[in-house]
């Protein structure tokens, strides 16, 4: 009886660990996290399971480096009801890149705004991107967080500079600053 309970408890713990709101493995640069073992057969079972959950069919780091952020520079959770400024000092050093906003369920937010991403083609070398639930009144690079809940940002660097593949923390990453929140004075 004790063994059966133990077996079930261990299985439940594994499921909670992988499907719960935890960041497993990887390294961080400010709010950005990346995992060097994405797609790698050498990944531990825990890391492989976590990547299967959140990054199924991702490429390994020699081809693409993925950075994910779920919080701002101050460690506050990214939320739909706040407005953020994402500041690029320069474009990421890769053949192609994109920055995409994903809702809390890890899919694109269903909002009809057609403002889910910014890519290398429609970006300036140095720029600020506004992340907000409604389009800014002044012209700006904008990504919509409407109906995204507690959201995540994914920065994909396709065929990055080899120095970044070797050490992703060398990448010049944009800063994520919270400007305001609707529920705060």
């Amino acid at each position: 009886m004790a063994a059966v309970a133990g077996l079930a408890g261990g299985a439940l713990l594994a499921v909670l660990l992988v499907f719960g709101p935890f960041e497993i493995g990887g390294t961080a640069s400010g709010p950005w996290r990346t995992n060097l073992l994405i797609g790698d057969p050498a990944a531990s079972p825990t890391v492989r399971a976590a990547i299967a959950r959140r990054g199924l069919l991702a490429l390994n780091r020699s081809e693409t480096v993925y950075f994910n952020a779920t919080s701002d520079e101050n460690g506050q959770r990214l939320r739909e009801n706040c407005t953020y400024r994402i500041s690029f000092d320069q474009q990421p050093d890769s053949r192609w890149w994109s920055l995409t906003l994903y809702a809390g369920d890890d899919y694109l937010a269903v909002n009809g705004d057609n403002a889910h991403s910014i890519t290398a083609e429609n970006a300036a070398d140095s720029m600020d991107v506004v992340v907000a639930a409604s389009r800014p009144e002044a012209p700006a690079y904008w990504m919509s967080s409407r109906h995204a809940g507690d959201f995540a940002l994914t920065l994909r660097l396709y065929q990055p500079d080899p120095a970044i593949s070797d050490d992703p923390l060398q990448a010049a990453l944009p800063r994520i600053n919270r400007l305001s929140c609707e529920d705060q004075s």
Partner: peptide, 29 residues
């Protein structure tokens, strides 16, 4: 003895489940 058996079983259950999850997610996909 039951406590040790439960702990051992918990580690085993944890390990088996972790190794099963990627294949399960892939088969679902």
């Amino acid at each position: 003895v039951p406590l040790a058996a439960a702990l051992l079983a918990a580690v085993l259950g944890f390990w088996i489940t972790l190794n099963w999850i990627p294949g399960f997610i892939m088969s679902r996909a």
